[in-house]
Amino acid sequence: MSVEFRDVVKRYGTATAVAGVSFIVEAGTLVTLLGPSGCGKTTTLRMIAGLVLPSEGRILIAGRDVTNLSATQRDVSMVFQSYALFPHMSVLENVCYGLRRSGQRKAEAADRAREGLKQVGLAGFEERQPSELSGGQQQRVAVARALVLKPSVLLFDEPLSNLDARLRRQMREEIRELQQRLGLTVVYVTHDQQEAMAVSDRIIVMNAGRIEQQGGPRDLYERPATPFLARFMGESNPARGSIRRLAPDKVSVRLGEAEIEIADTATADGEATVAVRPEAITVEPAPGPAGTLPGKIAKASYLGTHMEYSINTAAGTLFATCPRVERPLAAGAAVAVSLAPRGVIIVRQ
């Protein structure tokens, strides 16, 4: 079912955690709330759950106004960052808990709980205690416990932050697969933009209690609307460039001695803030051809899959990643920097 926020505000005393937020989560999609810590994303999630009630505005779930309903009265369930498995109950009792509280009989609840555990690949673990499970298994129990209630909305609060890197990727794939197989409506909170891009249909980026931008992962990465977004979604080098319109849908961007043509319809001629993605920077030993930017390597690090360079140029210090590890350049080398058009973004202020 869909979730809708209309001008929702949440204040704690004088502090404003969420300052007027409106969005719609379509039924059957996975939408991520992304942002740095303290941006209001968790408060927003908890308002969907009903664990926090808004100070202003309305919240609708499946078209029904649930603004003042408590968590129990809403048809949502949540997977917590700490998993929140009840330590005094077995795995089966944990998964049964919600079913029993909804008034199901014991045997029936146990059947459905076993079904749910099978769905997350934990058949046979029913009688274990939560403390006897690994982090990933605890995570799956938490998911099963929320799933068996067949909620209209399933909420995830930074579900992977307690797992190691390898397991994190595996779990996020499992969550995405489960969501698509069962057609669930999921709202997912994370501060990790890679995780957000990997699992989401749409991403809502929040900053300082407001929505900064929302859209698909590709939209946000390739067309960030604000400098904050350009910095937050992946790495980028901020720089000042001068813009000259070449055609109705094309401009030329000049950074120092380098000049590239990129697709653009809106920006006026003159100075503008430009974000340059590190992977769009190619580094060659100097001297390069015309239209490249001369520079000098300040730092060079070898990272196995790629090289990282800091390069001093006339357009400022640029951070670049370069997949060519077989011929690394040393610090102090004079280089020519060229830019690929798809990694140069004009950022509106």
Partner: peptide, 8 residues
């Protein structure tokens, strides 16, 4: 909170 969101 887990209990609350689980209909408890």
């Amino acid at each position: 909170e887990a209990s609350l969101t689980l209909r408890g």
